[in-house]
Design a protein around this nucleic acid. Structure first.
Lengths: 138, 138
DNA sequence: TTCCTTATTGCAAGAAGTTACAACAATATA
DNA sequence: TATATTGTTGTAACTTCTTGCAATAAGGAA
């Protein structure tokens, strides 16, 4: 029943393991429907696995993001939030009222391509929040 | 002699004050030549003003950035670094070796303009670090 | 000057995030 | 099976960052 079981083969294929801790964290993210802070993940996943600890949550979130099972995104105050991987996307966040707008991926992707050809770098982090003031708040 | 005195009128004009703490922090950033973390600013500025405290450093950096006297930029781990305002620019940072490359501002500016016309938002934060793998490390 | 208002700071406590290391658990190999 | 190897976690201590609040300092008005 749990959506997190689908991820086990992905981990196994790379020589990693699906542990109860990873299961609980993936389960939490799957069923939240939105991005969560590490602290929120910790609080929720602990209801399912009470032995879970903070360092494990931070390590696991970073691990899952590195392996592409979840996405990380930087939020306004310089911290990370996490969500399950759907499609690549960006958000435009209003500094004033907090309203989020999903950005047409084309606009950003074109710039990434230019950046890559200009620099020789291969861009790895394609999930960025942009900040501004929305039309209502201006 | 201190470069930070040039900023006093900018603050006064907005009803703010140039205090010894702000002076010390601006002085530190002016003479470092590179971006610094809040902790680094704290350590350096304290040599000049021993009574300076941590909360004041964090608050002052945020305050100065909001008022355009310094720039803030997000660094890899989701934390902020600060530097004195020069020209608007972006960095491309290698996830592997840490090498930084200054990005041609045109590339990014064009995308910002598209974002603005598409969304109606006015982009406020134009100082973003992009992450990737540099040509050497690929 | 004296009084009032507001900007600004320090203190103390707490929240969030990180690190080092020992212990454990799963898998592979002999 | 026994042994070695490697992945993974918990504990404890620590660093980094934030918040609430009282105290202070600066500037304006009377």
């Amino acid at each position: 029943m749990s959506c997190s079981e689908a991820y086990a083969p992905q981990l196994r294929a790379r020589g990693y393991r699906m542990t109860p801790q990873r299961h609980a964290i993936l389960h939490t993210l799957c069923h939240s429907g939105k991005h969560l802070t590490p602290i929120e993940v910790y609080a929720r996943a602990r209801k399912q696995l009470t032995s879970l600890t903070e360092p494990t949550v931070y390590r696991t979130l970073e691990f899952l993001a590195e392996n592409g099972l979840i996405h990380s995104a930087q939020i306004g105050n310089g911290r990370f939030v996490y969500e399950v991987t759907r499609h690549a996307h960006h958000h435009l966040v209003c500094r004033h009222c907090g309203k989020e707008l999903e950005v047409d991926h084309q606009i950003v992707e074109k710039m990434y391509q230019k950046l890559e050809s200009f620099s020789g770098y291969k861009i790895t982090d394609r999930h960025i929040n942009f900040f501004g003031i929305c039309s209502n708040c201006q």
